[in-house]
């Protein structure tokens, strides 16, 4: 037997690590319900800051902009990433498989300046088109495609191709086979990928900051609230955004977990 001491210290380290990882989240959620709004003094439980959050027109506009960007980026990522996953599954090229990971290792600041440079040169200087939410959508879809492709490709790796063969042999058309045999089986992967891209887009700050022009998304709003005068409303906003991310990611994990069990 391993010493109980060793076992206990591993367990303690694990609990400590969880505390370390969740401390920032817990602190903000706690603070968002603090009447005084100050991190230094507990003024009693209150939903006051959530009330102010709901009444804040600028935050409402930023939330709407964020939603538009995330929906646009997610749609594009699914439309391009899903076929890519199917193609990767068929081609079985290690080079292509590796290529899909390239968009994920590029630092966001490099993406940000690359997009700004290219958009500025092509759209602003040549076409006289100002940057806005549309340019953030294009930028977010660029890494979103990779995430959808990877998640769907994992699903396809567990996919039983004989069901497709059977359907075709039984005389179903390719379209019907895709819609009624393939799609239902890979749908959880597509939805999981979509949820992940949606979450990433909602939370993404650096690239949006560089490519949004004069538009303001929620992370840009949060950044300016943090950098230039913190009001307690930011804590309530942060708690809401954290909650939304956690729910979406848990849903994505659930969808993916079922696939691994199958």
């Amino acid at each position: 037997m391993r010493s109980r001491g060793g076992e206990l210290s591993l367990g303690a380290l694990f609990v400590g690590t969880l505390a370390f990882l969740y401390l920032p989240i817990a602190v903000l959620v706690g603070l968002s319900f603090n009447e005084s709004g100050l991190p230094t003094a507990w003024g009693g439980f209150s939903t006051r800051w959530y009330g102010e959050l709901v009444r804040d027109e600028e935050i409402k506009d930023a939330a709407l902009a964020t939603l538009v960007v995330a929906l646009g980026a997610t749609t594009l990522s699914v439309l391009l990433g899903t076929p890519l996953a199917f193609g990767l599954d068929r081609l079985r090229s290690r080079t292509l498989d590796g290529l899909v990971f390239v968009p994920m290792i590029i630092p966001d600041i490099v993406y940000a300046i690359a997009f700004l440079s290219a958009f500025n040169l092509v759209f602003t200087q040549k076409l006289g088109q100002q940057l806005g939410l549309w340019s953030v959508v294009l930028a977010h879809a660029t890494f979103g495609i990779a995430f959808v492709a990877i998640v769907v490709a994992t699903r396809l790796a567990h996919f039983d191709h004989s069901t497709v063969e059977a359907s075709l042999d039984l005389g179903a058309s390719e379209l019907r086979t895709f819609l009624e045999v393939t799609l239902p089986q890979i749908a959880p992967g597509v939805i999981a990928g979509a949820l992940i891209v949606f979450t990433l887009s909602v939370d993404e700050f650096v690239i949006a900051f560089f490519t949004a022009g004069i538009e303001v998304t929620l992370p840009i709003k949060i950044y300016s609230m943090v950098r230039f005068g913190v009001t307690p409303v930011v804590n309530a906003l942060a708690a809401v955004v954290l909650g939304v991310s956690i729910v979406l990611v848990l849903a994505a994990m659930r969808l993916r977990g079922r696939e691994e069990a199958a």
Binding site: P24, I25, A238, L242, V249
Partner: peptide, 14 residues
Amino acid sequence: WTSLLIRTYAWIVI
């Protein structure tokens, strides 16, 4: 998978 910006802000508070 939660916002890096928000968690980093939390460390300022902490």
